[in-house]
Amino acid sequence: MSTPSKVSIDAVGKVFGEGEREFLAIDRIDLEVPTNQFVSIVGTSGCGKSTLLNMVGGLAEPTFGDIRIDGRPVTGPGRDRGFVFQGYSLFEWLTVEGNIRFALEKSQLSKAEKAELVRHYVQAVGLMGFETAFPRQLSGGMRQRVAIARALVYRPSLLLMDEPFGALDAQTRGMMQELLLKVWEEHKVTVLFVTHDVDEAVFLADRVVVLASRPGRLKRDLAVPLDRPRRYDVVTSPEFTALKRTILADIREETLKVMALDPA
């Protein structure tokens, strides 16, 4: 196939620190992500998932290799990408609407168009009636919905999510996964989704990438051939279970490796 990749990660490595404390966090990762693919990235804690995502987001610079988006090298953060962080990271002094509108400030749209977009995304993430609430007044799941709306409202073509549901309880997490898929089906974008949760990774993605630890490397690249739209009960299907088993075995192997490296 000759369709150009949305994201192409080419022999990317990252070294932290200098001199004695030099530390190779990521060692030569190659990854091609086609447009509108939903990719989950899993791996043990500290294997470099956030670092990889930050480099794609332009928030950190690769030490080696190149990252390209739509064929153009990444030189810094930009509005072609949306970022959802683990710890909500909302602007506490702005209302729900204010947070979402803030993301549109640098866009050329008219005031009315912006208002319409804000309204649309408030609705898409199910926050009608909470437009004027401050983040502090919302539950964890609601806060994360604001973050998702804020990352999507300016229509980035690439969405980067770093353990966005990590802080949520199991029920809320399940609801948020379904909501994310619903929004994604409506507004297709390419997604890189970092998570610890193997169920979540498989349920959401077209493809799961497992990273090896110390240094971070590509360990496995697995297609998820489950039908879309996904129903919540897909997690009990034999196909799902088989995929999950493979990934869990990989992660267990990596965890044991890390534990052997520094026995606590």
Partner: peptide, 25 residues
């Protein structure tokens, strides 16, 4: 720190991030 990163991703300049994100936060 992610508030600053969000600002960078949204296209704000350093001065804008200082005034509109870091200061109110």
């Amino acid at each position: 720190i992610n508030l600053i990163r969000a600002g960078q991703t949204l296209g704000f300049s350093n001065a804008e991030i200082l005034r509109r994100i870091i200061l109110p936060a």
